[in-house]
Simulated scan of single mutants.
Amino acid sequence: MIPLAAPVCANVWREQLPQARAIGSGDLRWFGLKIYTARLWSEQTRFDPESSTSPFALELTYHRSISREQFVKTSLDEITRLFANRYSAATLKRWEADMQRAFTDVNAGDQLIGVYLPEVGCRFYNSRQLLAEIRDPEFAKAFFAIWFDERTKDTGLRSQLLGSRK
């Protein structure tokens, strides 16, 4: 039996985006295996990641188990690939510690939700609670660029998230 409070808790991140609607969604696959389903939530009807001055959320629903360490390593690798030497080793080390605090190990069915807060940073939630707030706007931009930068590794997923048709 599901507790009555479950639906409220599951949407705790929605307090940041009360009018948000799903813009697009798609699956990340690696060697044919479905890793997660991503869904972009925004209050804007035409979402533009390059000029977004409004909060948005990226919801990831996992289909496989992934460790916090792997999530952090992959995120840092992608930020470094996208931005080369833009960020110092000290900045990347600080961001690594922030992500270690913000992320959790996930299993199939688990969700992690990142909420982008312009000029503030971001918040990370699981389906039950706030996990961490990172008050660093530059980190937030670099982190969400993993999915929304034009140079992302998965341009098909980016297009689907942005609501574009292939």
Results as ranks from 00 to 15, higher is better:
F71Y: 06
F71Q: 15
V72Q: 11
V72Y: 08
K73V: 06
K73E: 15
T74E: 14
S75M: 03
L76R: 01
L76Q: 02
D77C: 00
D77A: 03
D77T: 02
E78R: 03
E78L: 05
I79Y: 02
T80D: 09
T80A: 13
R81P: 03
R81I: 06
R81E: 12
L82R: 01
L82M: 02
L82P: 02
L82E: 03
F83S: 06
A84T: 11
N85C: 07
N85W: 04
R86K: 13
R86T: 13
S88F: 05
A89F: 02
A89E: 15
A90V: 10
A90H: 11
K93L: 08
R94V: 08
R94C: 08
R94P: 00
W95V: 01
E96H: 14
E96A: 09
M99P: 00
M99H: 05
M99V: 01
R101W: 04
R101E: 09
A102N: 05
A102D: 05
A102L: 03
T104M: 13
T104Y: 10
T104W: 07
D105L: 12
D105C: 10
V106R: 04
V106N: 05
N107L: 10
N107S: 13
N107P: 00
A108G: 08
G109Q: 14
G109P: 07
G109I: 10
G114H: 06
V115Q: 05
V115R: 03
Y116D: 04
Y116V: 07
Y116T: 01
E119S: 09
E119L: 03
V120S: 11
V120K: 09
V120W: 08
V120I: 12
G121N: 14
G121I: 09
C122G: 14
C122P: 02
C122M: 11
R123I: 01
R123E: 13
Y125R: 11
N126S: 14
S127H: 14
S127E: 14
S127N: 13
S127P: 00
S127M: 06
R128I: 13
Q129D: 15
Q129N: 15
L130D: 08
L130K: 12
